[in-house]
Design a protein around this nucleic acid. Structure first.
Lengths: 182, 182
DNA sequence: TCAGAGGCTGACCGATCGGTCAGATCAGTG
DNA sequence: CACTGATCTGACCGATCGGTCAGCCTCTGA
């Protein structure tokens, strides 16, 4: 039990990511994380205020990128370019952060209630609106939502596919599947 | 507390469906279901062996239809017709049982471990295989999985859309989004 | 009239969860 | 040496969960 450099914080984060990916956020107890790290549950709660704080730190980079994508979309002058930026930006984000997104798989509805994800709901509504080409038609909205949810739900499952291959496949899918603007 | 016809069984089922749709399966306690019905938790467990039995009875019709779709797909002679049958059959199932599917939203990974859903994993793999036109190409598999997961994840959210409208929109989406066979 | 079955209740159980707390250990500092 | 502050532990807490159990009430039919 020699005292190494206090890298425990990072160890906990890594262990939590591994466990969350297998059993989900709610399905993973603090005790499991502690066991994987090789420390006590109390040690985990010494480094993180509570369980949610672990998730917050894990998701922070992805959320920051999502926020900036939201800004970029809002700055587009017309529906067509907004649709293009939204599609390309979302695919890029999904591919880059597919591990982080996979952590949330199957727990979106409830995790979205948590403070960390306070604004995600509005952001995803704007994303869908942009991908639907700002159209009010039900078919366009359905199409955008199905594709967005499908990508978010599955992007973490293609561990055997390279980033480039996945990005190309998803972009090609969006290009032929999204309803054209107008 | 007059003794009406013992409709409690059905009341519990309906109450559970309502609660599951809002807070999910795991997020709904037997006590919540009992409170919504207006009986004790013990009464719920008098009518159902355990919590899982409620879910089983709720999902039985949808699972039966899914099984028969699996059989129909397996009976198709060539990839093209299998793809068509899979797409049309899945859309039909998703629209008809969108309420039931919505109950599972966000809990697929773990609920699929339960005995009720013992064979669903293999069935969905065959569904994806058929929708991908029996192709081994990564892009075809990605495309099929994204669309299947997206439809399953979202079909319960379109409460303001009629069955016909939803079916047409999803079928149109699949027709232009799925990679053609060959 | 009364036995018994069906329907239901309240009290209770063991397990697990996230989280708290007092204190032990140890490196660094003066 | 004494002291401090960071790190970590084991014991413990209250809440909640799914599930059990003994027994009560009411209705039915012989």
């Amino acid at each position: 039990m020699a005292r190494p450099t206090p890298q425990t914080h990072g160890d906990i984060l890594a262990a939590a990511a591994r466990r969350f990916a297998v059993t989900g956020y709610r399905g993973t107890s603090l005790q499991e994380i502690a066991s994987e790290v090789g420390c006590s549950k109390a040690a985990v709660l010494y480094h993180f205020a509570n369980k949610e704080a672990i998730l917050t730190e894990l998701m922070a980079p992805a959320i920051a990128v999502l926020q900036s994508l939201d800004d970029r979309i809002a700055a587009q002058p017309d529906p067509a370019s907004a649709q293009r930026v939204a599609a390309e930006g979302f695919v890029d984000l999904a591919v880059r952060f597919r591990r982080e997104i996979a952590l949330l798989r199957g727990e979106f509805p409830e995790l979205l209630q948590q403070p960390v994800f306070a604004h995600i709901h509005e952001i995803s509504e704007r994303l869908i609106d942009a991908m639907a080409g700002r159209s009010e038609r039900a078919s366009a909205r359905i199409c955008a939502l199905v594709l967005l949810a499908g990508i978010a739900e599955t992007c973490g499952q293609f561990g055997d596919v390279t980033d480039e291959e996945l990005r190309d496949a998803l972009l090609a899918l969006l290009r032929r599947a999204l309803e054209p603007v107008g």
